[in-house]
Amino acid sequence: MTITTILLLAAAGFFSGAVNAIAGGGTFLTFGAMTLAGIPPISANATSSIVQFPGYVTSTLAYWDEISKRWRSALVLAVVSVIGSIGGSLWLLSLDNPSFRQIVPWLLAAATAIFAAGPWLTPKTTIERSANSPASVIGQFLTSIYGGFFGAGMGIMMLAVLGVTTGGSYHHLNALKNMLAILIAAVAIVVFVSGGVVAWPQAIVMIPAGALGGYAGVWMARRVPQTVLRWCVVAVGVALTVYYFVTG
């Protein structure tokens, strides 16, 4: 890697951690940076999962009190999340890079639209229903397949699905989403590492940068409006979508 590439990846990792701490959407930045660095799309996608993982862990720990009270009610969702993530990540590995590259612009377009619509998709109901209803199980299974396969926009998608199917306060839903996201990401990482598609040198550059960015995100949250960061991420998503449509 050149110095320029290292700086690009480090910056992407840093800002990925920061925007995840504030608004979410860090996958767009890491996937985009690795694309510019010449990493094949399957490897860039797999490596992004590893780079984002520490953020899922810290988010889960931040909601530990909420999770510790409710985890038993979400065991079925946890099981289907693992199964769905296995299916999605194995599906990714079954493709070659040219095939996946043709799908990427459509995935990016959908993920960007979901992320942009995030404020309207965020559930506002406080009426809590069973987390193990057929609707919530099916919805979470489909979301986890997507999360294992691609992952960008997964958090917003999961929050919306859980809000519609289970209800509850925002913090309850966010805690549940974080717990399930860490399972989906962990399973996908095991599959991707076993499949040998992770770009480790690039991951080693971005992981500590992402950790620093996550810490800095708390400072930025007090000074930069969340709307500004959200639309910056949307702009990156649009640019990546156009890039893949034009070059595909």
Rank of each mutant, 00 (worst) to 15 (best):
M1G: 14
I3A: 15
T4I: 11
T5S: 14
A10R: 08
A12C: 09
N20R: 01
N20A: 02
I22V: 15
A23D: 03
G24K: 00
G24S: 09
G26S: 10
T27G: 10
F28A: 10
T30N: 09
G38C: 10
P41T: 12
P41V: 14
S43A: 14
A44S: 14
T47A: 05
S48C: 13
S48E: 08
S49G: 14
V51G: 05
Q52V: 15
Q52H: 05
Q52C: 08
G55P: 11
T58C: 07
W64K: 15
D65N: 14
E66L: 07
E66T: 13
W71F: 15
V76L: 15
V80N: 12
V82N: 01
S85T: 09
G88W: 08
G88A: 11
G88R: 08
S89C: 10
W91C: 13
S94I: 04
S94E: 12
L95Y: 02
D96E: 15
F100I: 08
I103S: 06
I103L: 15
V104S: 03
W106H: 14
L108H: 07
A109Q: 05
A111F: 05
A113D: 04
A113C: 12
I114D: 02
A116F: 09
A117W: 13
G118H: 03
P119F: 12
L121A: 07
T122Y: 04
T122Q: 13
P123K: 00
K124P: 01
K124T: 13
R129N: 08
R129H: 14
R129K: 14
S130C: 06
A131Q: 08
S133R: 05
P134Q: 05
P134K: 08
A135W: 13
I138G: 11
G139R: 00
S144T: 13
I145Q: 05
Y146N: 02
G147H: 07
F150K: 09
F150G: 04
F150L: 09
G155I: 13
M158E: 01
M158V: 12
L159W: 02
L162D: 03
G163C: 08
G163V: 14
V164F: 13
T165Y: 01
H171M: 13
N174C: 10
A175K: 06
N178Y: 04
M179S: 15
M179G: 11
I182H: 04
I184R: 00
A185L: 10
A188C: 09
A188W: 03
V193T: 13
A199I: 02
W200N: 01
V205K: 00
I207S: 01
P208V: 07
P208D: 06
A211N: 05
G213V: 03
G214D: 03
A216K: 00
G217Q: 00
G217L: 00
M220I: 15
R223H: 11
V224N: 02
V224A: 06
P225Y: 02
P225M: 00
Q226G: 06
C232T: 09
V234Y: 11
G237A: 10
V238S: 07
A239C: 11
L240Y: 07
T241Q: 02
T247D: 06
G248H: 09
